[in-house]
Design a protein around this nucleic acid. Structure first.
Lengths: 137, 137
DNA sequence: CGGAATCCTTGTAGATACTG
DNA sequence: CAGTATCTACAAGGATTCCG
């Protein structure tokens, strides 16, 4: 397919027209995916998530959870006990997404080396004269 | 390095623990995906991209293109003619990603309605009583 | 225990103007 | 035509603290 689209590129559609962006906007958050993965094993508690993800702040956990809940990707169940106990669980919809995410993971695994090399090569080719003494990794 | 350092907060846990994040970090950009899609049809020129994506600025196009090039997802070919002519093309690696992206698209198509409804329901349930004072729509 | 509110730092993106 | 440079704005995210 070496077609030279010389001028036929107008078909490229509008920005938000493609549903791909919808998915990514929803999943692009730094923590969304990790929460989905962490919750994939079954119902999980707030604190378990907080401790399991290791690096997430309470704030971001809450916010991301809210967004996922809002989009119907996780369900929030409050147990009216004392102390309070709230469990989050993936909805079927989110479980499908999880499967799809694994395909992305697969792609990443397959090419991460190639990509890392590309980066290194690119950086090297562009830093060579700029690195008098900086020694960027 | 202007962190407060009130203690030993700089654990900086390996955020890239899961490869999923690598992919998303690389694709999460607002324009990355659209560029990949636009370039999927074959070699495409800078201006064609700029005009095709409709909404992207020169700066962002350049930056995103650079990142994609750096990661080895697009190749940049400069034709030493006058006026200058530069063509961008997806690498095989990126084409695989494009396929994977389509699976995401598929998921999105299937559930976009459900998600929209979830949002509406969530918003309704959370705004109804908040509108008493704030007046938020 | 589960959150909400606050403050602050940074990255991402837009607009504009200039260059090879 | 294909960029680069600069300046600014806004939102994502981190840290901390208070509340139910």
């Amino acid at each position: 397919m070496s077609q030279r689209n010389t001028g036929v590129t107008s078909q490229v559609v509008n920005a938000q027209a493609c549903p791909v962006r919808e998915v990514l906007d929803r999943v692009a958050g730094k923590w969304s995916v990790q929460i989905l993965v962490a919750a994939a094993h079954g119902p999980i508690r707030f604190t378990e998530l907080e401790r399991g993800i290791e690096g997430i702040s309470r704030r971001m956990l809450t916010l991301t959870l809210r967004n996922l809940e809002r989009d119907g990707l996780v369900s929030r169940t409050v147990h009216p006990t004392v102390p309070p106990k709230v469990e989050y669980e993936l909805t079927p919809v989110a479980q499908e997404l999880h499967e799809t995410l694994q395909r992305l993971t697969d792609w990443s695994e397959r090419h991460r080396v190639h990509i890392a090399e590309s980066r290194a090569a690119y950086d090297a080719a562009h830093d060579t004269e700029a690195t008098a003494a900086s020694g960027r990794s």
